[in-house]
């Protein structure tokens, strides 16, 4: 599904070179549930952005579901992103003037899906995150947890193969955070590959595969269940 080979991402700030990722090779299979932990600045977000095709590596090769996406142009990346990737952000990033339902419909709208097909996909996604009764609410009429669930509905409405969640509970209280994780795990249980960046060890340890990043490199790659099995 995801295959990264010798990925390096370098930022040059004021003549100084910073390696956000350094020679990272990583392979993630379809349907996996992976948590990514590590200290601040260790490259977690950069890794997610590269996997999500929002960012490009300076070196290395990225093959996403059989396509070498390393050299795609901006439009090609947008198409792949639309088809394969669902993002969940720490700060939700719902559009304030649109209702929950309209926010969820955005990716479908961009892809040119309309009418009944769109409505059905939106209904299904809202039902999956338990927000059917809040569909007409604007983001500022929703609680933090509800907002993040709306964002998850938006991430899954196009039936992506991968969900990338960068600290999805970072802005939520404990209870809401758990709800959100449960919803994400439910998506994973339905077959979507799930990558969650988190600072919370409890959440991190729920994943079947746990990556630890340090200084732009994968320091640990554990599969406790697999070991036990």
């Amino acid at each position: 599904m995801i295959s990264l080979s010798n990925i390096t991402r370098e930022f040059v700030v004021g003549g100084q070179s910073v390696f956000a990722l350094h020679d990272v090779s990583l392979s993630i299979d379809s349907g996996e549930y992976v948590s990514i932990m590590g200290p601040s600045g260790s490259g977690k977000s950069t890794l997610l952005n590269i996997i999500g095709l929002l960012d490009r590596p300076n070196q290395g090769t990225y093959v996403l579901s059989g396509h070498n996406v390393t050299d795609l142009d901006a439009d090609g990346l947008a198409v792949m992103r639309r088809r394969h990737i669902g993002f969940v952000f720490q700060f939700f990033h719902l559009i304030p003037r649109l209702t929950a339902e309209e926010n969820v419909a955005l990716p479908l709208m961009l892809a040119g899906v309309h009418g009944k097909e769109r409505q059905e996909a939106v209904d299904k996604a809202l039902a999956a995150v338990g927000l059917s009764d809040r569909r007409k609410h604007k983001p500022d009429e929703l609680s933090g947890g509800q907002r993040q669930r709306a964002a998850i509905a938006r991430a899954v409405v196009m039936a992506p193969s991968i969900i990338l969640a960068d600290e999805p509970t970072g802005n939520l209280d404990r209870k809401s955070g758990e709800d959100v994780i449960h919803v994400l795990e439910k998506m994973n249980a339905e077959g979507i590959t799930l990558l969650v960046v988190t600072h919370d060890p409890e959440i991190g340890s729920r994943a079947r595969r746990r990556l630890l990043l340090r200084d732009g490199a994968v320091a640990e790659d554990k599969r406790p269940d697999a070991l036990r099995a």
Binding site: L54, D75, V79, H93
Partner: peptide, 16 residues
């Protein structure tokens, strides 16, 4: 700006 960043993440094309 955030809205546009989001639209990019959702796969909008520059032209769109």
């Amino acid at each position: 700006q955030k809205e546009f960043g989001l639209l990019f993440a959702l796969g909008i094309h520059r032209r769109q």
